[in-house]
Simulated assay, not measured.
Amino acid sequence: MDKDYLLWAKENQSNALIPNALLEPRHSHEGVGAALVVRAVLYFERAYETSVRLALADCFDEFRAATGDVFKFVWHNGKAAQTADKAKPMRVLAASLGENDCFDFQYMSGEQPSDACLWSFRVFGMPAWEEKMGTRGIDVLAFSWPMVAVQDNPDAFARLFFNAAQRLNAVHGHAGHAINLSPVARQQNESTEFWISQMMPGTDVGPPTANAVRDLKGQIKTVGWLTAIDVAMLGKAGGVRGLRGELPPSWFSLNDYGAGVVIRAGVWPESGAAVTEGGKSFPPPAYVVLDRALRLVRVNGLDVLQQGTVNGDAPVYNTFSSTNAWLSRFETSGDGLLAAKAALLDTPPLDLSNALPNPL
């Protein structure tokens, strides 16, 4: 993360909140439609089991211990949003709900429950009957911090990601720059997400709970600042030795979370935003290197990442070709890979202060 970008992010944090339907003139611009954040997404199984639900409550407690009391509203199991201070605690519901009840929460820090927000904690847990069908995908945990908070303490965010992967025996996951969208107006704000992703190629796109992504097993959607892969994918990618041969150790760490490994690519997440006014955006070099190393487990194609609005004029990733172009945005030639590895020399290396548990 370039120092100039860090300074810009800190000075312009208010610009991280974007009006609703910014690029959709047919829709209201009231409220916050999109928020620029650093977001973690982890995919796991058996959210209907009490032990897993309590592990999710542990993740939530750790999040709150790190961030303080940042949430104002919570959406739960399809009900109307409640103020966070009046909602039943997740831990209580984890012990009281039946296995055939959904375990679905979305904690929000916005001024209104419909606002996209900077701080968020989202659990998408299917009931037992649905998950046991074997055709409905797997469960999701997603949480976010403002960019400035991660800038100030990247290691705390990385530890949250690692600890959650360990508690949940995550199948796969990733973390890095992303755009949170309004929980009630996603399609109206997808064009904003598209526009930002064009300026910041390191940004994740699409809802973490999308069926096409939850269906992935043995493959990942994308790489990021933090990437989790299970043991089976690790073997397919060449194992620890194979990855160590591809990933320069001064910029990449590998840490065993039990069910797999977390790969950290650098001190901070990278956006790929242009470093000078009028300059060109670029794929973050660390992600280019990691994408090549994990190419055998990164998916080739998906259903569309976005839907967009009816009769909307602004572009979105609503075709197979545009979606697959986004998925392959870090692919490069042999010379491009060498250039990306050389460019790592201009980025801060990891040191002992950045260490996560169980290094490999």
Rank of each mutant, 00 (worst) to 15 (best):
S322G: 10
L7T: 14
V205G: 06
S322H: 06
A228V: 09
G272I: 14
E111Q: 11
M90A: 03
F105P: 04
F330N: 06
D230V: 05
W145R: 03
Y317C: 05
P19E: 13
T222G: 04
R53Y: 12
A128Q: 15
A47Q: 07
E49Q: 14
V205Y: 05
V171N: 07
M200K: 10
E277D: 07
V205P: 03
M233L: 03
G110V: 07
L56D: 01
D291Q: 12
P315H: 04
S114I: 09
S51C: 06
M233E: 04
N189A: 09
F157A: 11
V92E: 12
G110M: 08
L42K: 07
A65D: 14
T332F: 10
N163A: 10
G224S: 12
A274H: 12
F252A: 04
S271P: 08
H76Q: 12
L243R: 03
L356F: 02
E49D: 15
G279L: 04
L6N: 10
D204S: 09
W8F: 15
F121G: 03
V150Q: 11
N358G: 08
E111D: 12
K79V: 04
A142K: 05
S271M: 09
A47D: 04
M200A: 14
S353M: 11
G218Q: 12
V148Q: 05
G218L: 13
N15L: 11
V70A: 07
H174G: 05
A116D: 08
W129L: 13
A165N: 08
E62Q: 13
L352I: 04
L160Y: 09
D313E: 11
L352G: 03
F194Y: 15
N100F: 08
R26G: 10
G31Q: 02
K221A: 04
V262H: 14
A265N: 03
D256A: 12
E30R: 13
E190D: 03
E331T: 13
V74K: 02
V213Q: 11
R167C: 03
T67D: 09
N100V: 08
A210E: 08
P285Q: 01
N300K: 15
V150R: 10
F143C: 01
P89A: 07
P25V: 11
L93E: 12
P89S: 10
H29P: 02
I220S: 02
P349T: 11
S321E: 15
P357N: 06
M199D: 13
W225A: 06
N255I: 11
A40Q: 10
W251V: 06
E193N: 01
K221R: 13
Y43D: 01
F63C: 11
T209K: 02
Y317N: 06
N324V: 00
A35H: 10
D61T: 14
N354Y: 00
M90Q: 03
G206Y: 02
V316Y: 03
G176V: 00
H172I: 02
F161T: 01
Q219P: 00
F71C: 07
G266A: 04
W225N: 05
L360S: 05
Q188D: 11
L93G: 04
R295S: 13
